[in-house]
Amino acid sequence: MTALIALALILLLSGGLMLLLAQVEVGPMPGSEPQKVPFLGGSEPATHAWQRFHLRYYPMTLLFIAFEMEMMFMYPWAVVYAEIGAKALAEMGMFLLILSIGIFYGWREGIFRWQ
């Protein structure tokens, strides 16, 4: 339990330290309007940059979520693997094989490319 508190303290304190550095106003004055224009090599932006960004790897992310679940089963398996031995290797082998079919199918349907 104390380790968790230590971890939380380290995370929060170092994060807070950097948050202080990032926002301490040192410079002379806040930016003027022309200073705040985003940098596009000298051109004027026509619209906000925030947009419904058309990312091209959405099938990969969905497959990734399903594959991630599989990782969660592997952690406990790794702990008892040495104890159970060959039977565990067989089970996980089958588990991995099943999921590799999913990845092979995804690859064949071309989802690991920019859509």
Partner: peptide, 26 residues
């Protein structure tokens, strides 16, 4: 001088390096 852009998400902009540094420490 520290300039922001026209309409940033300033809280998230400052949180990013803090989170990145905190994760490195953790």
């Amino acid at each position: 001088q520290s300039i922001s852009t026209e309409r940033p998400d300033l809280a998230a902009w400052r949180l990013a390096p803090a989170l990145y540094f905190g994760l490195a420490a953790a």
